[in-house]
């Protein structure tokens, strides 16, 4: 069965239709990349997939593991395995990192009917995974995303992905704000999570990220439509020639 199936998806914000009919299928083990000009609807697609309020699906279907998620709230979808690494992670003043991460992991475990994590074991696990992603112990003690630099926020998103082990992960411009070394470390972290357990949808503007996280498929989103799909070479083409030619051809 397909992991994620998006069929003729149309969505609007307020009265404005942003997605004009998207078709995309992702299987377990696959990494898909989406590229596209600013304002083409990439983040909108990520929000519609994860069920954000205010984003109304007017037509089409989203199936996760064959089940429609359209009637599910954002938190239900998350517990069903949908994960979004935010383009702009949100600050939660006063909310301690460890308690936040644990609440999230426990919510997922409860859904699966498993026992909640033991506090000590959890702290150990978080530290280990944080270390691999270059997230400081000190950062784990701070309030979620508060006072984090742009790059730190992005690493923290991937740390959450590593802890939550989603089946379908959407990464929205995870590379923006990362320095060269951080890009490599975070990409390694993402690659370590690649595998049959999950599918990934990586949104980016830059080929640079895709040379680290090599995608199986690349799609070009423009004006709320996928105008072209191809393999990793399509990203190179965009890098060299920009979108204009592709959009004209579509």
């Amino acid at each position: 069965m397909n992991l994620l199936e998006i069929k003729n998806l149309k969505a609007k914000i307020g009265d404005k239709e942003i997605l004009h009919g998207i078709d995309l299928t992702i299987n377990r083990g696959e990494v898909h990349a989406i590229m596209g000009p600013n304002g083409s609807g990439k983040s909108t697609l990520s929000y519609v997939l994860s069920g954000r309020d205010g984003y109304e699906v007017t037509d089409g279907e989203i199936l996760l593991d064959g089940e429609s998620v359209l009637d599910m709230e954002a938190d239900e979808r998350a517990r069903a395995g949908m994960f979004l690494a935010f383009q702009y992670p949100v600050e939660l003043p006063g909310v301690g990192g460890m308690s936040f991460l644990r609440a999230a992991v426990n919510a997922r475990l409860r859904e699966k009917g498993e026992d909640e994590v033991d506090q000590l074991a959890f702290v150990k696990m978080v530290r280990a995974k944080a270390k691999a992603l270059g997230v400081d112990d000190e950062m784990l003690k701070r309030a979620v995303n508060v006072g984090f630099s742009g790059g730190e926020k992005k690493r923290y998103e991937i740390l959450q992905m590593a802890l939550l082990e989603p089946t379908m992960a959407v990464l929205d411009e995870t590379d923006s704000g990362l320095d060269v070394d951080a890009l490599r470390i975070v990409s390694e972290g993402v690659n370590a999570l690649r595998g049959e357990a999950r599918g990934m949808l990586v949104i980016t503007h830059y080929q640079r990220l895709l040379s680290h996280i090599v995608p199986d498929y690349v799609h070009i989103l423009a004006g709320g439509r996928i105008i072209k799909s191809g393999d990793k070479d399509l990203a190179l083409e965009v890098e060299n020639n920009g979108y204009a030619g592709l959009i004209d051809a579509a």
């Binding site: 309020d53 954002a74 998350a78 979004l84 935010f86 992670p89 949100v90 600050e91 936040f100």
Partner: peptide, 11 residues
Amino acid sequence: QMFYCRQRGLD
């Protein structure tokens, strides 16, 4: 904030 937390599975 609400959406961020809910996206992480919290109701």
